[in-house]
Each structure stands twice: as C-alpha cells, then as structure tokens.
C-alpha cells in the first residue's frame, strides 16, 4: 500500500485544482474577510474565521478523495490496478490516506497566516489540539466523498462535491457564525456534521475543552458515511 500512497501523494501535490481548493483559497479568503467588513480587526473574528477556513480547506481536500476515485474509475486506471497484485481495498485506503496527508500542510498554513498577519496567539496545547482536531475530524468527510464518488453518476459527482464543500461548510458556520443565521437554518446547522466538526476547534481556540457531544455527533455521521461508502464500494468494485 505504501508505494501507492506515495504515487497518490505525488499526484495530489502536482494537482493545481486540489492545491487551489485546499490551500490558496482558504488562505486568500481568510486574509480577505479578516481585513474588510465590519468585523475586520476583531481578534475574536480572526480566531473564529481561522478555524473556519482551515476547516474548509481540510473538508474540501478530504471530500475530493472520492472525486479522485471516480475520475480514476472513468479513465480506466482502477481497471489497470485491478490486474496488479494490489487489492482494491488498499487502493481505496491509499487514496483516502493520501488526501488526509495532503491537507495537513494547508491546515497549518492557514494557522500560520492567522498568527503572522493578525497576530493570533494561542497556547501550544491549543495549537496542537486545534490542528489535530481539524485534521482527524476531516476523515468523515473523506468517507462522504467516497460515498458520493461511488454512488453518483460521473456527471453529478462534480456538483455534489461542490455542494459537499460549500453547502456543508456554510451550514456549519465556517463562513459566517451560526448565531447570525435565521431560526430554521440555525436548527439545521446544529445537526450538520460540519458544525460539530468546527465547534470542536472553536471550543479549543477560545480556551474551552472540546465537547463530547460534538465528537459524538461527528462519529455518528462518520458511521453513516462509512456504511454508505461501503455499500457503494461493494456495488462498484465488481464493475472496475
């Protein structure tokens, strides 16, 4: 599996689209929306939006593992891999691992930008916990990406991925605080996996312990995505 992980990592690091979504865009939006508008210069907003944008990059990068897999299937690369001794399950595991590894630098860079440009200062444990939670917490979204990649038609994969990235991050309060949403949307937000994902790190960033309830909801979503992805895998693996 390791050689394939290496190959996948090389592909990702040379993929401009992937780097744009996971690194360039989150940093650019972070710097933009913390420098203009009424909340510009607010220390709390600089911290809040740092978590939002680092989380968005991680989310986008994790979800795109499924898109990559769908592309590999349509170009026939997965068929090619099937006639090597590498088992299909390891191909999938390597693909997800590669995306998980590749989002880590992007995540750190958003934090570096926050510390460098807006002077965000946190305790060492906070930085470690925050980056760790944003990183590990992105795994359920990789499973969501796989579920979409397996079950959606090649044409609808793109729009669904887009909804996954933007819709869910918006709903989770990663672009605007959930408290500014109208009532119904707030209620929906509190069910969304992205809200609980980001809230773990918001708690840490504002000096609180991450809530067990957030972790529990995220794990439940992860289990659901895993089941759907597994069903999709069983259905499509034969057609490779």
């Amino acid at each position: 599996m390791l050689p394939y992980l290496r190959l996948e990592l090389m592909r990702l690091l040379r993929d401009r689209r992937f780097l744009a979504f996971t690194t360039v865009m989150p940093i650019a939006y972070y710097l933009l929306f913390t420098s203009i508008g009424s909340s510009a210069g607010s220390a709390a907003w600089s911290v809040y939006f740092m978590v939002g944008m680092a989380g968005f990059g991680a989310l986008a990068g994790a979800v795109s593992a499924g898109g990559g897999l769908a592309t590999d299937r349509s170009i026939g690369w997965l068929r090619q891999l099937r006639i090597t001794p590498l088992p299909s399950s390891q191909v999938v595991a390597a693909k997800v691992s590669a995306n998980m590894v590749a989002i880590l630098p992007a995540l750190v860079l958003v934090c570096v930008a926050a510390a460098g440009v807006h002077g965000v200062r946190l305790a060492a444990w906070q930085w470690v916990a925050l980056v760790g939670l944003l990183w590990a917490g992105a795994l359920p979204f990789a499973l969501l990406g796989l579920a979409i990649g397996y079950l959606a038609s090649p044409l609808s994969t793109g729009p669904l991925m887009g909804f996954g990235m933007f819709g869910l991050s918006l709903l989770g309060g990663m672009w605007f605080p959930v408290t500014t949403f109208p009532g119904v949307m707030q209620t929906i937000s509190h069910v969304a996996p992205t809200y609980h994902y980001a809230n773990l790190s918001w708690n840490v960033a504002f000096g609180q312990a991450p809530a067990v309830s957030d972790a529990a909801v995220l794990v439940a979503w992860a289990a659901l995505f895993a089941i759907i992805a597994m069903l999709g895998y069983r259905r499509t693996s034969r057609a490779w």
């Binding site: 090389m10 026939g76 068929r79 090619q80 006639i83």
Partner: peptide
C-alpha cells in the same frame, strides 16, 4: 496485462 481501456493517472 495491457487492456484496451486501461487508463493512466495524470500528474506522474
């Protein structure tokens, strides 16, 4: 094996 529809990954 060399398949008729075996694709190659980009970026490598």
């Amino acid at each position: 094996a060399m398949l008729q529809d075996g694709g190659l990954p980009g970026g490598v």
